[in-house]
Design a binder for these strands. Structure first.
Lengths: 250, 250
DNA sequence: TTCGATTTGTTCGTATGTATT
DNA sequence: TAATACATACGAACAAATCGA
């Protein structure tokens, strides 16, 4: 067979074409988070390629934490209910290096139109209907992170305050389980600044004490942005950890 | 042949054993940065494994940016002379998202013994002979990052001020070319703080303006630490970008 | 410019091992 | 125990890029 598949018009290798098709199926909700996707042999038959090509396609999705393989069981769509996926997206640790599961408390919820700041910070078209959510994260009982979250209402139908307040697990877990929105990648920008008095008060900071200011964009499949955050982090006892994979190189 | 190679006592898969052996050879300086390692077919013959196993072993080292493949040419030990490797380790960007090659200026150099702070921050045994280097990075002509770098003298024989001052390219490029020390991974911890007046002055900051404080540990092969930094970043016009790979998921 | 050798890249197939159900 | 699914290892064939004769 040729190295280029007949219905592959983009001159991409076959395994990448397969990867696309799997990604599209995921984006379309064909297989839900936590569920198993068809077995490699079944996918090979379905796509009419060798099992090795299927494995190669899945390899990259596993590396991107979009799928999870389990020998003897199957290959599953990654969920946000496991601790390791949490710490893939949550980078605040104790200054002693301790990692802790944060306790979450919702402080506010409203719906409105996106404004100029959203356009400047996130490239979000002005006037988009959005929900705003203020969420406080505590570590060891102490308030450490204040998140101001913005999501387009369109992506999250029938979103309401009670859903957020009564949720179990992480916010991304909620997106995934209830709205079928799967966050697979984030981009964060950090700077140091003086938080507003209101924020400093919530975070229990002394006045004039600086804090970490963060802007995050969260992406789903195919690099489509689905959530925007402005956060303040009290770094008196904690810090932001950026650790570029321990995967390879041992 | 068995899945476990005769001289593989650790019950690791064969490709990982091969990966180890390649990594050890790299750490021993058998192949220098910029040089080609033996071809896959040659390695396969040398290690008495199939070429597929060699490819699998190299795959992970390429993913970890330790090796670089080039079709038709060979597989090379990664260097710090290319722009893309620079931005893998340098995370400061303009607030408008612009990436710029920093201009470097050495402000100080001395040798001494490591102190209590090094032990606390980096786990570096107290009393180790170290070199201290103060380096200023400018972006667009403006001072933005001040690095206080600490390296164990043992790893860098005959290290002197002139070598640093007259270098071309990055500091990690210098480590690599002149001392055979190849930085392959870094871990960074960030917090917000008030810089000392001296630092604020160097960075051209207004007094009482907060800055990003960073501690970095740089690792070579096999996760052995080789360099320690304390940095201050002026985030008036720039910010720290943490973008967890765009590789997969497209 | 052409050609051939070399090297990595892609795809296929097969056999066997290991974990799960 | 048997069936299923992923994991490892091998090999073959051809494609595509590179480089020097």
């Amino acid at each position: 067979m040729n190295s280029v598949h007949p219905d592959n018009l983009t001159a991409n290798p076959l395994y990448r074409e397969v990867q696309w098709r799997i990604t599209r199926a995921l984006a379309a909700g064909e297989w839900k988070p936590g569920e198993a996707i068809p077995s490699e042999s079944r996918l090979a038959a379905q796509f009419k390629v060798s099992i090795g090509t299927i494995r190669r396609a899945i390899d990259e999705l596993v590396a991107g934490r979009i799928l999870v393989r389990q020998q003897g069981r199957g290959t599953f769509v990654a969920t946000h209910t496991e601790d390791r996926t949490l710490f893939y997206f949550f980078h605040v640790v104790g200054k002693d290096g301790s990692r802790e599961f944060p306790e979450s408390e919702m402080l506010g919820f409203r719906k409105e139109r996106s404004d100029e700041a959203d356009e400047r910070d996130f490239g979000l078209a002005r006037g988009t209907r959005v929900a705003r959510l203020r969420n406080l994260l505590k570590l060891g009982g102490q308030p450490v992170v204040l998140d101001d979250i913005t999501v387009p209402v369109e992506e999250f139908p029938k979103l309401d305050e009670a859903t957020f307040r009564k949720r179990e697990g992480t916010i991304y877990g909620l997106y995934q389980a209830r709205y079928g929105v799967n966050v697979v990648r984030i981009s964060e920008r950090l700077s140091a600044a003086q938080p507003p008095a209101e924020v400093a008060g919530i975070l229990g900071m002394h006045p004039n004490q600086p804090a970490l200011q963060m802007r995050r964009i969260a992406y789903s499949y195919n690099d489509s942005p689905v959530e925007y955050r402005r956060s303040w982090i009290n770094t008196a006892e904690h810090e932001y950890l950026s650790d570029l994979w321990k995967t390879a190189a041992r």
